[in-house]
């Protein structure tokens, strides 16, 4: 399990390194996007913790470049609040998560663990969200390692939400995926599927929020 931290503030980087060493996840550290590129060229990492405001090439540029090379490595962005657009655009250009400085180290470690687990899951057709596992090949769901019985539409909805974590899905977008065009459905139908799904997944790390008037948003809280 190798994590690369790209952060130009020495004190913060040292503190993060020390903290991660303490909890048994030693990490590699470099100070700029340019040196990160060199490291990534001949070593493989499981995850990047990337500061946006770097000397020379910015974190955004590095991230864009990685995603353009279809590099799937999970990236967690560190950003300062003053950069008001960071939070939105970081997710838009392919960051998997972000944290706003100053942040809680425990929270950072938890988010990293969540990302690493999710990534390991992806490789084996599995999506792991904390205590919840979804296996796309067998369409099975386990919570606390206990198999959960879901109906067809509930599975479809769960998969759709897991593939769009942290993004809003409108009712129309969900209906398009859940129902064929010749199938009649009432606006309440989706709400009912969701209610059943929520009940069956009670106590899981996956939160499905309804934003009335806007749509649905799934978020993993590890």
């Amino acid at each position: 399990m190798r994590i690369l931290l790209i952060e130009d503030n020495t004190e913060l980087a040292n503190a993060i390194s020390e903290y991660f060493g303490h909890i048994g996840h030693p990490l590699d550290w470099c100070e700029s996007a340019e040196s990160a590129e060199k490291l990534l060229a001949y070593q493989s990492f499981d995850m990047l913790i990337l500061d946006i405001n770097l000397p020379g090439k910015s974190g955004f540029q590095l991230l864009k470049q990685l995603r353009a090379q279809s590099e799937e490595i999970p990236v967690l962005i560190l950003t300062a609040r003053a950069e008001v657009d960071d939070r939105v655009s970081a997710l838009d250009i392919g960051a998997d998560d972000y944290m706003v400085k100053p942040f809680d180290f425990r929270e950072l470690a938890a988010r990293c663990r969540a990302l690493l687990r999710r990534e390991r899951g992806n490789a084996s057709n599995q999506i792991v969200c904390g205590n919840l596992t979804y296996d796309a090949s067998t369409a099975s769901v386990t919570l606390h390692e206990i198999q959960i019985d879901l109906r067809h539409r509930e599975i479809q909805l769960l998969e759709l939400l897991l593939n769009n974590l942290d993004h809003v899905l409108t009712k129309e977008q969900i209906a398009d995926r859940l129902y064929r065009f010749d199938e009649a459905y009432t606006p309440n139908a989706i709400e009912q599927v969701l209610t059943r799904l929520r009940k069956k997944l009670a106590g899981s790390s996956l939160h499905i929020k309804t934003i009335r008037g806007l749509g649905y948003l799934a978020h993993v809280d590890d």
Binding site: R87, V88, D166, H167, V168, H207, K209, T210, I211, R212, G213, L214, L217, H219, D221
Partner: peptide, 23 residues
């Protein structure tokens, strides 16, 4: 407005707060 609300919901997804949008 929907971008603002979305990012707020994301940051407080683990709470019991109910978010609504009226437009």
């Amino acid at each position: 407005l929907s971008a603002i609300l979305t990012s707020e919901v994301r940051d407080h997804a683990d709470s019991n707060i109910e978010f609504n949008y009226s437009n």
